[in-house]
Nucleic acid binder design. Sequence first.
DNA 1: TCGTTAATGATAGTAAAGCTATTAAAACTA
DNA 2: TAGTTTTAATAGCTTTACTATCATTAACGA
Lengths: 249, 249
Amino acid sequence: MWETLERSPTSFLVNLAMAKKEDRTAPLLQIQVKINEKLFLKDPDSTELGRKIVSEGVKLIDKIGFEELTFKKLAHEMSSTEASIYRYFENKHKLLIYLISWYWNWLQYKLTLAVFNLNDPEEKLLVAIKIFTHTYGGIPAQTPMDLEALYRIIISESPKAYLTKEVDTVNQEGAYLNYKRFTRQVADLLTEINPDYAYPRALISTAIESAHDQKYFSEHLPSLTEVSEGKKEEVRTFLTEMIFRTIQS
Amino acid sequence: MWETLERSPTSFLVNLAMAKKEDRTAPLLQIQVKINEKLFLKDPDSTELGRKIVSEGVKLIDKIGFEELTFKKLAHEMSSTEASIYRYFENKHKLLIYLISWYWNWLQYKLTLAVFNLNDPEEKLLVAIKIFTHTYGGIPAQTPMDLEALYRIIISESPKAYLTKEVDTVNQEGAYLNYKRFTRQVADLLTEINPDYAYPRALISTAIESAHDQKYFSEHLPSLTEVSEGKKEEVRTFLTEMIFRTIQS
DNA sequence: TCGTTAATGATAGTAAAGCTATTAAAACTA
DNA sequence: TAGTTTTAATAGCTTTACTATCATTAACGA
């Protein structure tokens, strides 16, 4: 149905044209994942080194955790130097924000494409839930970014991106725009389904955070959830039920 | 109806006897908040200095944030020394875990007392929600611990206590027992109300985390929620509705 | 009241983290 | 080929996150 081709960690090509046979030779539609310029000192997508910082950064954070990450270690891992990395990102916190921003942008595209041909808002919502619970198969992205690792980072590190004393400043720089946009888009579906429901955004942000928490709990603090480890579908089932029951009129 | 008297940051007296006039002179029932011994090197509740570390620690974390906290700063704040603090807590992360553990223990007592004379599980649940959304007035605790500051710490720092690579080790040391116990207790109420509901714990842990998130969002990322800043009751309304609708059969 | 012990304070020191600056080599561009 | 940009290499500085030592004081028991 569609196909995604590699370009760089932060851009990807989506061949929507593939759907129609006569268009097979048409040029690919490139969707550039635009990341706010204030999130980096120098666009990591613009150079080989920059892209490596991002993709290796994902691997290393996934491996040792965000607190254990240092630019020195990362530099060593990719046989570069600390100083070089500092030219791209002010500090490791900004790198994390960049990755998270990238993730939400990617999910947004996934969502946009996935609901493209759907009309029923309930169906759309089901797809949206699949997407943020990481149970939506479609749209393969062949980016050098390890998406599974990135998802694990989202689960276990993303609250650290906003739970900091600098939230307000960083927020003004647009760090969380992509997350907000995604949330709004899904929340709007709730409103389509039931215009009278008073807390669509609160419910979606709750569900998104819960998706991550429940996965994490199932692995590390299993007595906080009935979801069992490894069963991706269970989180989705739980949240789908929660959302639909909550918004019913 | 009852009264809480000061003792130390980690223990408090609750005068249940006050309820009955004839018992006015009866000795107070002391409820010791028992904190797992593995969470500290030396019981901070056992000495003046230890208690000060805890109460000043709360103030300082609230003021500058957890990442900015250092034992040096804390020592300076309380005119003591770094080395002295290290005699009580292995590191600042353990201090945070201690505070959080203390908080959940305190909520547990609040809950136990508050539902004491209630029979209807739905009523009990309403009270439980009030308690974890911080909208339950009752039970004043006159502890030197600044409870409002502690609550702000819970909101903005508590995920950091479990989102770490050492979760599993720390978990084995019983760091999260109080949180788990509280969650279980509330989840059991859901089961009482509807024995067929499949995800009581997941729903309660979701609601508890959401209570914190929504408050945080309303202050710092308002487009993620309809809850407006400062309106405590709104989070409760949102979550009460969500929970009751979700568990209905 | 003395002597012992435990708790704290004072001081010092170490390794790593979190940067910044300087220079030189390499790569790419005009 | 000269000039500009990018990266690597190196060094250095401040702060964090500890650990160790020792003197002083308070507490406590005989």
